[in-house]
């Protein structure tokens, strides 16, 4: 597994833990109300699970498993994918902070914009790798 995938997937697992903890608190609050303020955590739960856990896990696995090129650098230009990792996590954190602060619409906007940028950068990296496997290309070349 390449280093960037390790970063993506380990970060995703940490978000899974956080997301499940927030979810358990919310469900507990439904069954046995203990603090009404817990409901303020609901948007954090959704952000963490969707962007932090599922999206990030998918990006990490895609970077690892999508077809590589026959010659080095085998995964092409990795820089947009690294930038995507940074932008995605920065975006998630800005959004999480914006949910906790009163009147933080601009912060939320910046967070979502960073997430969009992350996806565009990741698509930019992945696009040329959506192709036949390298060994098939090499075999074609030998024909």
């Amino acid at each position: 597994m390449p280093k960037l995938s390790v970063y993506f997937i380990r970060a995703a697992l940490l978000y899974l833990l956080a997301g499940f903890t927030l979810g358990a608190l919310l469900l507990t609050q439904k069954g046995l109300p203990f603090a009404v303020e817990i409901w303020l955590l609901r948007p954090l739960h959704i952000e963490v699970v969707i962007f932090g856990w599922i999206l990030q896990l998918v990006m990490g696995v895609a970077f690892w498993m999508m077809p590589r090129f026959a010659e080095a650098p085998f995964r092409g230009d990795e820089r947009p994918a690294w930038l995507a990792f940074i932008c995605l996590n920065l975006g998630i954190w800005l959004n999480l902070i914006s949910f906790l602060i009163y009147d933080a619409a601009l912060l939320g906007l910046a967070g979502r914009a960073l997430e969009v940028l992350a996806i565009v950068l990741f698509a930019r990296h992945l696009w040329p790798r959506i192709k036949p496997f390298a060994d098939k290309l090499a075999a074609k070349g030998r024909e």
């Binding site: 499940f20 979810g23 358990a24 608190l25 469900l27 507990t28 439904k30 069954g31 046995l32």
Partner: peptide, 8 residues
């Protein structure tokens, strides 16, 4: 509900 939260 508490058990469900804990199990998940």
């Amino acid at each position: 509900a508490l058990l469900a939260a804990l199990a998940q």
